[in-house]
């Protein structure tokens, strides 16, 4: 099983920076997410999590540091959180930190992700 490293790009579309590490279980999705083929991009990340949680079965530490994501991306982010919740229910060790842009609206969004998925998420204002 291999790590995922994707360099963020801010052009016509915005690709987030992704770093998923097999050895440590440290995972980061950062930057901006507004993609041409949202499902295709995130399905690779979802596959990685599925594989890690069924074969490696180590701890997962997720840092979300997204300053912007469109509604299509938010659907896929919920899919990731659902997988993490499932892993946690099955006994996996999961920590999730969500760094949000300091505004009421973005704090609400994190709170809604918590309500939506039942996952415990640490809410941290971005610097």
């Amino acid at each position: 099983m291999e790590d995922i490293h994707i360099e963020g790009v801010h052009e016509a579309y915005f690709t987030p920076t992704v770093n998923f590490e097999v050895a440590t279980g440290n995972c980061e999705i950062a930057g901006e997410s507004y993609l041409e083929e949202t499902s295709k991009f995130y399905s690779k990340l979802l596959d990685w999590i599925r594989k890690y949680t069924t074969t490696i079965k180590g701890p997962l530490n997720f840092d979300f540091k997204l300053s912007y994501f469109n509604t299509s991306s938010s659907k896929c982010l919920v899919d990731i959180l659902d997988l993490l919740k499932k892993y946690q229910n099955d006994g996996g060790k999961v920590t999730v930190n969500w760094y949000y842009d300091d505004s009421e609206e973005e704090l609400e969004e994190v709170e809604d992700f918590i309500l939506e998925t039942g996952l415990e998420i640490n809410k941290i204002p971005m610097e």
């Binding site: 499902s39 509604t71 299509s72 938010s74 659907k75 809604d112 939506e116």
Partner: peptide, 24 residues
């Protein structure tokens, strides 16, 4: 917000995908 949570859990690519955009 509750409505957005509900719409977000609809399968991707469903007709009415513009719905969640308007809520947003």
């Amino acid at each position: 917000r509750e409505y957005r949570r509900l719409q977000r859990n609809m399968p991707a690519g469903e007709k009415g995908g513009g719905n969640i955009g308007l809520i947003q």
